[in-house]
Nucleic acid binder design. Structure first.
Length: 310
DNA sequence: GCCCAGGTGAAGC
DNA sequence: GCTTCACATGGG
């Protein structure tokens, strides 16, 4: 099995190896971009669209296993952004001590390219929640409103000779806006969404009705896309920037949350005490044309090396 | 019990 | 304009 077999679709298989260097799967999938990946030993199990996939870091790259054979793996390479030249991105980062430390701590961390609706909905649910809690809310939302998705069996994932437990029994797709638009606020609160429930419901209705055209945003410029997203209730600058970065791939979208504020203060202004506005202005022009990428390195570095809580 | 969490919107200066 | 507060819920 080679990457050429996968990429060109000459072989239809449920297993594929993507020959990619400089890709830290664990850092990427656990860095708070996406909330639906589960680790079991050395495997990562998740659902992309309507497919379950099991991923494993290999010396030669990333191995992927699906429940059913695939003739075209572009849905996965696009999600994982395996075609990105990481060295080129890292070369644009400012050459200062904090950035060097952050990159050294998790080199190979990548930005994913997620579905806009799923990304938007997840981050609407993220405000003043810890990542573990966001994961719980999203899991419950999918269980209640998503469609069943076939699981990858242990034999598929590990081979028939290895008597190991399943990576996952099966799962649920992320509910589309049309489905959540038909839900009630009480049903969403039952998923522990709390005060975010009405925001999610309103956003689902605006997207489902076409009033908010998520598919059309990709073709617009950063400022216009940001403006449209921030018209949604419960979506301010931070959540908009997350969606712009993680779903639309705008490289200079720079989400500023409590972790990034802490990173900027501790790493760049340890003596002074600049207010958040000053810190945002600093970030605006300090981190270069891939500032969003730099942001993700700072975020993950702070969470893994200066944790207040996990 | 207490503080905090990948924030936002509304109300008060 | 900027600051303060409420908003649910649970982890540490």
């Amino acid at each position: 099995m080679s990457v050429a077999d996968c990429a060109e679709g000459t072989v239809t298989s449920a297993r594929c190896l993507f020959a990619v260097r400089d890709y830290d799967l664990a850092a990427t999938l656990s860095s708070g971009q996406a909330f639906r990946w589960n680790r079991q030993g050395d495997t990562w199990c998740g659902i992309i669209g309507r497919r379950m996939v099991v991923l494993r870091q290999r010396p030669e790259g990333i191995e992927a296993i699906t429940a059913r054979p695939q003739s075209d793996w572009s849905w996965l390479t696009h999600y994982l952004q395996t075609g990105v030249d990481l060295a080129e991105v890292l070369a644009t980062f400012p050459d200062d001590p904090p950035m060097r430390v952050a990159v050294e701590s998790c080199r190979g961390l990548r930005l994913l390219r997620q579905d806009p609706w799923e990304c938007l909905a997840c981050f609407i649910l993220s405000s003043t929640k810890q990542i573990t809690q966001i994961r719980q809310i999203v899991a419950e939302l999918c269980r209640r409103f998503g469609e069943p998705v076939a699981g990858v069996t242990a034999a598929q994932a590990f081979g028939p000779s290895e008597p190991r437990v399943l990576p996952e029994e099966g799962g649920f797709s992320f509910p589309p806006p049309e489905r959540l638009a038909r839900a009630t606020e009480a049903e969403l609160r039952a998923c522990k969404a709390g005060f975010r429930a009405p925001y999610l419901l309103a956003a689902a209705r605006r997207v489902a009705s076409g009033e908010c055209d998520l598919a059309g945003l990709g073709g617009r410029c950063l400022a216009e896309s940001r403006f449209e997203l921030e018209r949604l209730p419960g979506v301010g600058p931070k959540i908009a920037n997350c969606v712009l970065l993680f779903a639309y791939g705008f490289p200079m979208a720079f989400p500023v949350d409590v972790w990034i504020l802490r990173a900027l203060r501790q790493l760049y202004f340890p003596r002074r005490r600049p207010n958040p506005g000053r810190l945002r202005a600093f970030a605006e022009d300090h981190f270069g044309p891939h500032s969003g990428y730099a942001q993700q390195y700072l975020f993950h570095y702070m969470r893994t090396h200066h944790p207040k809580s996990k």
